[in-house]
Design a protein around this nucleic acid. Structure first.
Lengths: 268, 268
DNA sequence: TAGTGGTCTAGACCACATA
DNA sequence: ATGTGGTCTAGACCACTAC
C-alpha cells in the first residue's frame, strides 16, 4: 500500500528532501509547515471515515512511520487537532476520535444551564418530537445550509423539558442528501444526543457551530408549547452546525426559556 | 539577584537533580510538569507588573537562562500563556504582554455584532456616561465581586450608541479598593476601551470573563434610555470579569437591543 | 547582520493503562 | 511487561523584523 507522504518543506535537514515543486491541488499557501500538512492528512482520514468516532487512531510512532516524519511532528499535528476537539488524548491508552456519544457532557453544544444546581442534578431532559417531515428548502434555510431553494430538507420540531418544565423549543433543518432515510420514528425512538445518532447512522460528525442570539417574544403556538404567555421574553438561538471543512449540516432555531435557566458563555 | 528556580521534577535526566522534596507553599499537586511551574513563575511576574501590558517580555533563551531550564520548556509555558490570551507572540519581534489597548478589536469581550455589515463599518460607538458614583455594595453585588456587603464600590451607568441608535445600556460595579481615585470625569474623558484605562491607570488587567445571558423586558427608565417601548424583549448580559488568579474585578449588567444586532457565539 | 520566534528532529525518561 | 501519551532536553535550520 502506498502510504501518504507530505510535501517536503523547503530546506529542513530532510535526508532525502527533493525538488521544491509540490503537489497541491488547492490554492492554499504553497508551503505550509510539515505538521500542518500532517494535520491535513489526518483530517482527511477522519473525514473519509478511516477511523470512526470513539475509536483509537494509530499511535504517534505509527503515524510518524506512515507519513515519514518524526514523532514530534505528528505530536504537534495531533495537539492541534485535540485543541480543536476533533481528537481526544488519553494518557496510556491512545488518541481517540472525538464523539458526541459516550461523553460525560450530555450535550456538547448546549450552553443553557440551570440557575441553581448542576446540569447533572436536573437529570436527563425529556424530549418530545412534535413534528418531523420532508419538505423543500425555503430561500433562507437554503442559504444557511448551503443548498439551493427547493432542495429537499428534513424539518423537525421538538420540545425539551427539564424536571417536567418545557424549556427549549427547537426547529431543526437537515439537508436531505446526507440524511436520507432519517425518519420521525427513528428520531423519537433514539435516546441519547442527536449528534451521536448522526455520527452512528449517517457518518455526519458535527465539529463546530456558530450561534446568533437574540431576545424576542413567542408567537401563540410557541407560547402554548412552552407554557408561557405570549408576552414572555425568550432567548432565540440560531445555530448552524458544521462538519469537516466548514460544510454546514444543520440549522437549528431554538427558543429558550430563561426564567429558571441561563445561557452561559466564557470569554477569554 | 537570586533568580527564581523551579522545583526539580522527579526523575528526569537532570544533571544535578536533587531530593524529591519540594518547596511548595500552596496545596497544588506536589509535582507538576516543569513547564507548568515555569508558566506559574511567568504568570507571577505578569501579575506583579514586572512586564506591563503591551511591552515585550524577555526572549525565550533569556527566560530559559533565568529559570535554568531549556528553551523548549520555556516555549511550552509561553505557548500556553499565549493560548490563554495573556501573551501575544510576534514572529521576529518577540513575545508581548496582551493588552486591551492598541488592538484591532475595539472591544475584546463584546460579542454583540451588527446584523449587516462588519463591526468596523459601523464606526466607533458613541458613549454617554449617565451616572457614576461611590456607594456601598449590596449583598448580591458583594457576593459576585468577592466583597462583603457594605464594602465601598464604584457604580457607573453608560449608554452605547451605534450609528446614533442606543443599543447597549450597562451598569458597572467596580471594587472600591483597586479603583480608588476613579472619577466620573476620568471615565467620560477617556476615549478607548475601558479595560485599557484600567490597565494603564490602575494596573488591573482583565484576563477572562463569564457571562450569563437571559431575555427580559426593561423597566420604564431602561426602556426610555434605550428608546424602545417597555414590552420590547432585550438581552440581559451579566458579566463578571476576572484578573489573574480568578479574582473578580468587575460586575457588569448590560441590556442589549437585538433588533439590529445579535450576540454571536462560536462553539467547538 | 543580529536577534527573535517557528519548525523539525532525535533520544531519554516518566506516568499511566492494560494484559 | 509492554505500549501509549507526556515531559524534557539539545541542536539545527528557517522566516521574519529591525538596525
Amino acid at each position: 500500500m502506498a502510504s501518504a507522504s507530505p510535501v517536503s518543506p523547503p530546506g529542513q535537514q530532510a535526508p532525502e528532501a527533493s525538488v521544491s515543486a509540490n503537489g497541491w491541488s488547492g490554492q492554499a499557501p504553497a508551503f505550509s509547515p510539515l505538521y500542518q500538512q500532517i494535520k491535513g492528512l489526518i483530517l482527511q482520514s477522519l473525514q473519509q471515515g478511516e477511523w470512526k468516532p470513539g475509536e483509537v487512531i494509530p499511535s504517534e510512532f505509527d503515524l510518524a512511520a506512515r507519513f515519514k516524519v518524526s514523532q514530534g511532528t505528528v505530536r504537534k499535528a495531533v495537539d492541534e487537532l485535540a485543541a480543536d476537539n476533533l481528537l481526544v488524548r488519553r494518557q496510556g491508552r491512545g488518541t481517540f476520535v472525538a464523539t458526541h456519544a459516550e461523553q460525560q457532557i450530555q450535550y456538547r453544544f448546549l450552553r443553557l444551564m440551570p440557575d441553581t444546581g448542576s446540569v447533572d442534578s436536573e437529570g436527563p431532559a425529556q424530549r418530545d418530537f412534535i413534528d418531523c417531515r420532508r419538505q423543500r428548502a425555503s430561500a433562507d434555510v437554503a442559504r444557511l445550509l448551503g443548498l439551493r431553494a427547493g432542495d429537499p430538507v428534513l424539518q423537525a420540531r421538538r420540545l425539551l423539558r427539564f424536571k417536567g418544565v418545557p424549556t427549549i423549543l427547537e426547529d431543526i433543518w437537515l439537508p436531505g442528501g446526507p440524511f436520507k432515510g432519517l425518519t420521525a420514528e427513528r428520531l423519537s425512538q433514539y435516546h441519547g444526543p442527536m449528534y451521536a445518532l448522526f455520527e452512528a447512522e449517517f457518518g455526519v460528525r458535527m465539529v463546530r457551530a456558530d450561534e446568533k442570539i437574540r431576545a424576542l417574544t413567542p408567537d401563540d403556538s410557541q407560547a402554548a408549547l412552552l407554557e408561557v404567555d405570549s408576552g414572555t421574553p425568550l432567548l432565540s438561538v440560531e445555530r448552524i452546525a458544521y462538519t469537516y471543512n466548514d460544510v454546514p449540516m444543520e440549522l437549528r432555531r431554538g427558543l429558550y426559556r430563561t426564567d429558571t435557566h441561563h445561557y452561559r458563555n466564557q470569554l477569554s
